[in-house]
Design a protein around this nucleic acid. Structure first.
Length: 500
DNA sequence: ATGTGC
């Protein structure tokens, strides 16, 4: 069997593109990296593998702890990590969800083709930039009162429907129908709410973006038709999260874990993994606050959707957005934890997704941090319109590379707790990126060489997000396809991009 | 990711 040696880690390829981290003999469950050799070489350059091993040693970990092909180092847990902990005797971890709670991405279809947009990119990108607040700080599509914010935290997309920012079909095409009923307002600090109130409907900064794209390749005609996608069609991608509100909630609960569960924290393989033990009051509070932030992020993407729809109707001189067919294809979440029931096998160390023994249904806290749910065809949580083909999975690449739409693969539940990758994944830190690239040069080259029109709040952000700082999205998707966890449906290519 | 920080 093929092996790979990284600094302090030996991995064995137990089947094609599945790498097992060597057993350390401590109380860890097996850990797996899903990657080809070239992606693994990139993944092994930072702290990702050590972080993955640490995750595998957490209480109640259900095997395997996973790193997706786009994985890289994160806070405590790797970004691109999937970790499931038993909901009865395991734990829930803010670091396993991430600072940007329910960061995610959605795709809107249109009836436009590339010819309709060609030559008007500059006007379109300017209009979108003006309509959607972006960059750091406050300001949003909805100038919210605290009462509005509380309603949004509690009801998610339902609040948007009530306020005229969404139609019922939008709700059906979000995970969990755009609403986590377990949201607990009392678990959200005033500071978090203050930060959220002024940011309802704002893109933010970093890797967040709003991109107009065209469909360049169709790999699966039937599924593309079910998703309402066709070659040359113009689509819109919105990638953002829960802004300061989610960040504040994560910070609040990391601190509370230190204060209220110091012994449990000390027992973890690394302090940055900071988790609350399942069944504790703090675990329940964090779950309630996280669900509120999840609702906020859905509202955020929906408010931006509303602004994008109005802007398109204006720029393309249509009576309304419906006339342009700007339906929500789907909205996927990248940074969440959720109580899910999975069929697992009992082992000496607890439970495992792999194995031949008798399967039992177990309630787990599934953490997807920089990973996308990818439920297969037939799963009851896949919206009715897509149930026969599988859940749409949207995987954005860098602003020069374009993106993929996949469908949840038949192997996802058995291999990855129903998950796949979430993007290309960084190759280098933001600091390193700013040394390597100059924002203005990157922007000029994208326009001159690739006809991609970028407008950004900050030049530094363009440098940090230059195409060269990301892994190869084609490789990431190939791994997902080869393992049957997510099957390619279409590929898209950027037309214009608004960055924070 | 983030009022880019204890």
């Amino acid at each position: 069997m093929s092996t790979f040696d990284a600094d302090g880690h030996r991995l064995t390829e137990v089947e094609p593109d599945v790498w097992a981290l060597a057993d350390t003999g401590d109380e860890s469950v097996p850990a797996r990296v899903l990657a080809n050799r070239s992606l693994l070489a990139q993944i092994s350059t930072d702290n990702t593998l050590t972080q993955l091993r640490n995750v595998a040693g957490m209480p109640g970990a259900v095997a395997p702890a996973l790193c997706m092909p786009d994985g890289h180092q994160g806070y405590g847990f790797p970004v691109g990590g999937v970790a499931a902990f038993d909901a009865e005797d395991g734990c829930i971890s803010p670091g396993g969800v991430g600072f940007d709670i329910n960061c995610g991405v959605r795709m809107l279809t249109t009836t436009l083709t590339y010819d309709d947009v060609k030559g008007r990119e500059a006007a379109l990108v300017d209009a979108l930039y003006d309509a959607v607040p972006c960059g750091l700080g406050g300001g949003g599509v909805h100038d919210g009162t605290h009462a509005d914010l509380d309603a949004a935290l509690e009801r998610g997309i339902d609040w948007c429907v009530e306020e005229g920012y969404a139609v019922p079909a939008d709700r059906r095409h979000c995970e969990d129908e755009g609403q986590r009923l377990d949201a607990d307002l009392d678990a959200v600090s005033k500071k978090a709410r203050d930060r959220g109130a002024s940011q309802m409907g704002s893109l933010g900064s970093g890797n967040h973006f709003l991109e107009v794209q065209r469909v360049t390749d169709v790999y699966d005609d039937d599924t593309a038709a079910a998703f309402g996608l066709a070659e040359d069609q113009v689509v819109v991608l919105i990638h953002c999260g829960s802004r300061g509100l989610g960040h504040q909630i994560c910070s609040d609960y990391l601190r509370r874990i230190e204060q209220e569960h110091p012994d449990f924290l000390a027992s973890l393989p690394n302090k940055d993994l900071a988790a609350a033990p399942a069944g504790s009051e703090l675990a329940a509070s964090y779950y309630g606050a996280m669900c509120a932030a999840i609702n906020f992020a859905w509202v955020n993407r929906q408010l931006i959707t509303h602004a994008v729809r109005e802007t398109f109707a204006d720029v393309f001189d249509a009576p309304d957005w419906e006339a342009l067919g700007m339906d929500l294809l789907y909205d996927v979440s990248h940074n969440i934890a959720k109580r899910e029931t999975h069929a697992v096998v009992e082992t000496e160390d607890g439970y495992s997704l792999a194995g031949d023994g008798e399967r039992v249904e177990r309630e787990l806290f599934v953490h997807r941090k920089g990973a996308t749910r990818a439920f297969p065809a037939g799963h009851p949580e896949v919206p009715a319109a897509y149930r026969e083909v599988g859940q749409p999975v949207i995987i954005p690449g860098s602003m020069g590379a374009g993106s993929y739409v996949l469908r949840g693969g038949s192997q996802s539940l058995g291999r990855t707790f129903g998950s796949t990758a979430h993007g290309a994944g960084r190759l280098m830190s933001r600091t390193q990126a700013k040394d390597e690239y100059q924002g203005g040069d990157v922007q000029d080259a994208l326009e001159a060489d690739d006809d991609i029109h970028v407008k950004a709040a900050s030049g530094a952000t363009i440098a940090e997000e230059a195409p060269g700082v990301y892994k190869d999205i084609d490789d990431v998707v190939d791994v997902s396809a080869g393992l049957g966890v997510g099957d390619p449906v279409v590929r898209t290519y950027p037309v214009c991009n608004v960055k924070g």
